[in-house]
Design a protein around this nucleic acid. Sequence first.
DNA 1: ACCATGGCTTGGAACGATCCAGAGTTTCAC
DNA 2: GTGAAACTCTGGATCGTTCCAAGCCATGGT
Lengths: 343, 343
Amino acid sequence: MPRSGGHISAAPPTLADVAELAGVSRQTVSNAVNNPDLLRADTLARVQDAIDKLGYQPNRAARSLRTRASHLIGLRMPALQEGTANAMMDRFVHTFVEAAAETGYHVLLFYGDPADPLDGYDELLRSTAVDAFVVTDTHLGGQQTTWLQSRRARFVSFGRPWTQPDAKHPWVDVDLAYGAEIATEHLIERGHSKIAWIGWHKDSLLGEERRSGWIHAMHTHGLSTTGLASRTEDSISSGKAAADAILDETEPTALVCASDTLAMGVLHSIFERRLRLGEDIAVVGFDDSQVAQTVPPGITSVRPPLEEAARELVKALEELLATPSYAAPGVMLKPVLTVRGSS
Amino acid sequence: MPRSGGHISAAPPTLADVAELAGVSRQTVSNAVNNPDLLRADTLARVQDAIDKLGYQPNRAARSLRTRASHLIGLRMPALQEGTANAMMDRFVHTFVEAAAETGYHVLLFYGDPADPLDGYDELLRSTAVDAFVVTDTHLGGQQTTWLQSRRARFVSFGRPWTQPDAKHPWVDVDLAYGAEIATEHLIERGHSKIAWIGWHKDSLLGEERRSGWIHAMHTHGLSTTGLASRTEDSISSGKAAADAILDETEPTALVCASDTLAMGVLHSIFERRLRLGEDIAVVGFDDSQVAQTVPPGITSVRPPLEEAARELVKALEELLATPSYAAPGVMLKPVLTVRGSS
DNA sequence: ACCATGGCTTGGAACGATCCAGAGTTTCAC
DNA sequence: GTGAAACTCTGGATCGTTCCAAGCCATGGT
């Protein structure tokens, strides 16, 4: 049965329906949508009227098939750790989706086995389901990015190419060594001099970077760091254990933690010792998570500009998709310190 | 130039490439992928070999165009409130993406103007970009669901149809009246009798539901509720204000809060009064958010089974997409109480 | 009056898959 | 040995869009 163009039907209207109603050819309607300046003003108006009247929207599948572009960006669902304070990704994803929408892209969330960093990418790539990917965990090693590069996939990463300094893909990252530095300097300004560091293990690239900021600030101000550093897992219990040990041994008056999770561990220790947070002892965390924002009296925390990062990534993505050979310089953003009651 | 089937090329292999390599027709390859039992065993093996050799995956756009199914589920990015403890959606989305992946669906995240609950749906619907939606904020009024229904869109909702008891779409929700009940009973068991309620305004459907659970538990145990209830905004500062007022007036020994955010407000009040949480006073929250899990000594909280909810929704979605006329009974899940140091 | 120019519009082909109807082959009962 | 039924496989049409090359029609220079 031929499609009865003109009046309301169950199936969505097609280009042909609009063309018939406007009395032009299909191609002219297509041009009205994609290259309006090719049409004479009066034709454009007539076509536009028909489009509005029918509520026409181009069929995405058909358009994708022809143009070989899906206008979808793939984002692998970041692993969710129960119990840690890292809901940071939420804020990032939110702005990313918003910024992407402004340039006509939607986000395809997919799942991959946490044990295999590459799981899920291949299928989407081969089925040409997405135009590009956003990779978020570059600090776990360059597996994902090198693999994507070898498959000639388009992608940008949130996180510098830690292990491949010569990587060519666009990236955006936050300078968290600087973050540790301003956190430490904030405490120095507040009159502290025995400022401890509770961070991650030596093999954590992120951890070592943040740690270097603390060391730099301390040394710049002529303060000693001996006996004040601690390395442990990123969990509340190990944060508490580390705090217990360092508070017993060295009696610092302030602690800088590599994450809000560790900071919460410190709070547990303080809670047990019946110390007053922000009065007897100062604590600074990282990430400016929900937890840091809400725990009384509020935890001073290094806030990464996730919104800005997301927007920069979308911008890079746009250029990358417009110019396949596009090689952007990496963008390094500076975090800010959100000061709260804990310091 | 005709496609040179057989050896590696930049463009992904197509059905025709596989067919040529296996020495069968396109349709046979298509059947091998979609209806393997239609083929003779040896033919299937031969085609499968060719598929593996070329690394063939059906092109999603082409398949979508023909079958009118995208295998994508639309999820509008829930509004993100800075400063509240509600990162609950994260957990939900995570399991949802995972469960959806198991049944061959991916999730399309899209953005809509927070001021307009319908923004974004129309475009995706008209362009046939998604097969169905998941609606998450049904308590804000039935606008989204009624609109989707009128457009004959397929969808399921996380949240009962509050204002339309006769709605036909599948839904899943959590019985949070029951949640408030077990929270209150937990406190009664612990020996409390003056148990206050800090909840939301009267026009909040969710708030009134939770409140009814508290009232029911109190009355069942012959306890009075007069002077023990408070209604306010869902924010830390108003939680603190409500706690201040109720602690001054009625001196309860325990408080049940309609959300972890309010519970955090209560904690601020307790912090100021230098009371010991879990010793001098007990607090129970809702949502079992990151914050409840991490704040020392841990906040006892009503935990909605989000993972189960997500899986139920995917199941309903699957049936809905298989049988367009499918009308599922709503599913009501029971939360559990996670007991921590605050009680 | 004629041809070149450029702006605007058009029909046919193509993207890569699945649907459909029919052709070829085997199986099996009579 | 024959016909029907069942099983396999195939070619052509189709989904809705954009690409392509060609067509139409005014305009303007010669």
